[in-house]
Design a protein around this nucleic acid. Structure first.
Lengths: 204, 204
DNA sequence: CACTCGGCATGACAAATGTCAGAGGCGGAG
DNA sequence: CTCCGCCTCTGACATTTGTCATGCCGAGTG
C-alpha cells in the first residue's frame, strides 16, 4: 500500500541504535536508511537521505530530540518525527508536541509495538504513549503566575536572591515573596526542590 | 573450549532488552537464557536459570544493578556480572567494582564489542571502559572527612539543619560547620549543589 | 617528652532566606 | 458603578543558613 517506510535512527547509544536498526529491519515494510549519534548529525543525515520517519532519542549530545524535530519540521515537512525516550517527563512531552512531533513513546515498548507505531505515524496519525499522556494531564497546567515562573527560572542556577532581584528589576523582598509563593504552590521544601519540580512538570 | 556462554539480560527498557537479546543471539557462542525488567526479577531469574554471565543495566526499578550484583555474588559465585549503563558516573563505577562486578561499560559500545567483552568477563578477566576508568581516576579520592560525608548525606534530601543535627547527634553549629567545610572543599555554591557534586563523584 | 598538625566539636555573630500583613491596580460579576 | 478577587509589589520581622575564632584530643615527629 504505502510501500516501504524509510527510517532515520538517531540515538547516542551505539548499542541501542544498532540493535534497534537490526530489529526494525526484520519488518518487511521498514528500512533504516540512516543512523546518527548526535543532534547535528541527525539533521545532516536527514537532509542527505530524506527519510519518511525520523526516530529520535530525546537526549542526545549537541541538540536534543525536540530541537532536532523543530529544525526537521522546517526543512523536511514530509518527514514525520517520532521521539523515543527513557525518562518520560511531562514537560518533555509538552515541548515535543509543541514542536510538531507526531509520536512520543518510552523505551519500555517492545520492538514490535514500535514498528506498529512507526507505521501509525507514517500514515499521518499521532501516537502518544497512554501512560505518559496520563502523567502530562495529571501534571496539568502551571499554577504559577508569570512573575513566579520568571523568578523561579532566574533562581534555577542557584543564584542568590540579590542577583535575581537585580536581573528581574524587583526588590529583594518581592523576589523572596514570589519564590515563597512558588515553593508553597509546588509543595516543595525549599527553592531548590521547587526548581526541580517545576522543571520536571515543564512549568519553567 | 569454553563452550556456550549462558546469559541473563536485565534492563527495564523492553525495547533495548529485546533488541540486545536478538543481536547477542547472532553470536554462535552466546545464548540468552533469561530476561528481566527489574532488580528483583533479575535475581529470581538468575536463581532459576543459573546463567554464566549476568548483563545488568545500572538503573532499574526495585534494586539497581549494583545491589543485584551484590546479591548475585553471594548466591551464585560462579556467575560473573557485567554492568551496562547510559550514564557513566564515576561513583557508580567505584561502587560496582566494590560489589565484585567484573565488567563496566557504557551503552555507547557496539553490540559486537559487547559480545567480546562478555567473553572476556566469562573467561574470568575484568573489563572497564577506558573512558569511564579515566573519569573515575580523575575524580580521585574524596577530600571529605568521615563526618563531612556523613552530614552531607543526611542533607541530601533537603532536610533543615535542625533535623540533620538531631539525626547525627550533633549541635546545629557543628552541622553547619561540616556542611560549610564540605561546600568549600567541593567548590560548590551551597549545600544543595555540594550534594549533587558529591553524588556525581561517588563521594557520598 | 614537647611540639605540631589535622579532625572533631561548639557557640557567637553575620548574612541569606522565608513569612507575613498590607497597599495599589486591573478586570469581571453583580 | 461598586465590589470582589487576583496579581503585583513592598518593607518589616522571624527563621535558617553560613562563617569565624576557639578548645579538645589523638597521631606522628624530632
Amino acid at each position: 500500500m504505502t510501500g516501504v517506510v524509510r527510517l532515520l535512527l538517531a540515538d547516542d547509544e551505539h548499542l541501542i541504535r544498532g540493535a534497534l536498526a537490526a530489529l526494525l529491519s526484520l519488518e518487511d515494510d521498514l528500512v533504516v536508511v540512516a543512523e546518527a549519534a548526535s543532534g547535528p548529525e541527525a539533521l545532516a543525515m536527514a537532509r542527505a537521505h530524506q527519510p519518511d520517519v525520523a526516530v529520535l532519542d530525546l537526549q542526545m549530545p549537541g541538540a536534543d530530540g525536540v530541537k532536532v524535530a523543530t529544525s526537521l519540521r522546517a526543512e523536511l515537512p514530509g518527514c514525520q518525527v517520532l521521539i523515543v525516550t527513557s525518562h518520560g517527563r511531562p514537560g518533555h512531552l509538552k515541548r515535543a508536541l509543541a514542536a510538531g512531533v507526531r509520536g512520543f513513546v518510552p523505551k519500555t515498548v517492545s520492538a514490535q509495538r514500535l514498528a506498529e507505531i512507526i507505521r501509525t505515524v507514517h500514515a499521518g496519525n499521532r501516537y502518544v504513549d497512554p501512560e505518559l499522556a496520563a502523567d502530562a494531564i495529571a501534571a496539568g497546567d502551571s499554577p504559577l503566575t508569570v512573575r513566579e515562573a520568571e523568578v523561579l527560572e532566574l533562581a534555577a542556577d542557584g543564584a542568590p536572591v540579590a542577583e535575581i532581584a537585580e536581573r528581574a528589576a524587583l526588590s529583594q523582598g518581592t523576589v523572596r515573596n514570589y519564590l515563597s509563593s512558588a515553593v508553597s504552590k509546588l509543595g516543595a521544601e525549599n527553592r531548590h526542590s521547587a526548581v526541580r519540580l517545576a522543571r520536571e512538570r515543564g512549568w519553567v
